[in-house]
């Protein structure tokens, strides 16, 4: 009897094995990946450069790509902080020698990407998988080498005539300014890591005096909007009225405006334009204000959005917005002409 019981699963396994590979515990579920599929998706580049594709790019080629695809967010020299934290800056020739960025200890200065990143593989991988911001994974391997070469030159890690490639990238790693600036000696990584604070659950007379060391000033209480509007209007507590003007009720936004503002987000417009003020391009309210008296305002703006342009609001170019349908263009133009109400 015992022998019979033991043998039954074996018989079942044999039967399954006829239809499915011997390893498949979950018959009929999933399949093996093809080599081409793995190659298409296995894009990560490790600190030991496993995964780095062959190729090369020069600083000068990178500069051209940078001007066209990167500078509008990161600035011509990678040090702009209007959209993202600066990539370059606050590293020194001494840091390149020691592999520790002194500014991180000194404090006070902005933490740029080059002050932190310890592995050049990360930068290659980052640019390749996620850049440019609005068109990730659109750069060829050689383009990535070139853009990274330009960045490394801005950070004074490589000279202006450098050609970065899979063959010399290890030399660059040996010059990364913060290559020795990371530690895993802490308790927050291993499953059983040891905590670095040791509080006690004291219950009575734990301290003699309590002193307030920090609080919000009154003028900043409304910085996040009227707090009364961020709590229920019934229950155990109310939100504090931090904006006296908010006591007057606001008229509800017209549904048509909500449709357009949703569209602005869905079509990527809000990546560059703030509702009120400039991000990369001008704020929608600013555009509305500038053109409101123009007789052909709707047609003019629809045409501008469709074709893009530069020079009116600054040097950053707005690319043509081919993703917008004609009716979407007209809705956005009409909304701008009516004052860009949220």
């Amino acid at each position: 009897m015992r022998a019979l019981l033991l043998s039954m699963p074996v018989v079942l396994m044999l039967a399954v094995g006829l239809a499915f590979p011997a390893h498949a515990q979950f018959a009929g579920v999933g399949r093996d990946a093809t080599d081409a599929e793995v190659k298409a998706w296995d894009i990560d580049v490790r600190p030991d450069f496993k995964g780095l594709p062959p190729g090369s790019g020069s600083v000068s080629a990178g500069e051209q790509l940078w001007t066209g695809k990167c500078a509008s967010c990161h600035g011509d020299f990678g040090d702009d902080n209007h959209v993202f934290t600066p990539l370059v800056g606050n590293t020194t020739a001494e840091d390149i020698k020691t592999g520790r960025v002194a500014a991180l200890k000194a404090g006070g200065s902005a933490r740029t990407t080059f002050t932190k990143v310890n592995t050049v593989s990360t930068l290659w991988d980052y640019i390749h998988r996620a850049m440019p911001w609005d068109a990730p994974k659109s750069l060829s391997s050689d383009n990535v080498y070139a853009v990274l070469a330009y960045l490394l030159n801005l950070a004074e890690v490589v000279p202006a005539d450098y050609v970065l490639s899979d063959r010399n990238i290890a030399e660059v790693q040996a010059r990364m300014p913060n290559r020795n600036g990371m530690t895993r000696a802490h308790g927050l990584w291993e499953v059983n890591g040891k905590p670095d604070t040791q509080n006690q659950a004291c219950m009575k007379d734990c301290q003699a005096e309590v002193k307030i060391s920090s609080a919000l000033p009154d003028y900043a209480l409304n910085a996040h909007g009227n707090l009364a509007d961020q709590n229920r209007t019934f229950g155990a507590v109310r939100g504090r009225v931090t904006d006296p003007k908010a006591a007057a009720s606001k008229p509800a936004a017209a549904p048509a405006n909500a449709v357009v503002t949703a569209l602005l987000g869905a079509r990527g417009c809000t990546g560059c334009h703030g509702m009120e003020t400039k991000i990369i391009g001008p704020g929608f309210k600013e555009v509305a204000g500038k053109y409101q008296t123009r007789a052909d305002v709707k047609a003019y703006l629809a045409d501008k959005i469709a074709k893009g342009g530069s020079g009116v609001w600054g040097s950053a170019a707005m690319p043509p917005q081919a993703q917008l349908s004609k009716s979407e263009l007209e809705s956005i133009a009409a909304w701008l002409a009516a004052g860009a109400q949220p």
């Binding site: 002194a102 932190k116 990360t122 991988d125 990371m182």
Partner: peptide, 19 residues
Amino acid sequence: GTKDETSHYVDLMPDGMLR
């Protein structure tokens, strides 16, 4: 050593080391 393990999500300590 991905982007969000070197450029971001690293904790700066008083001695200038990043956890």
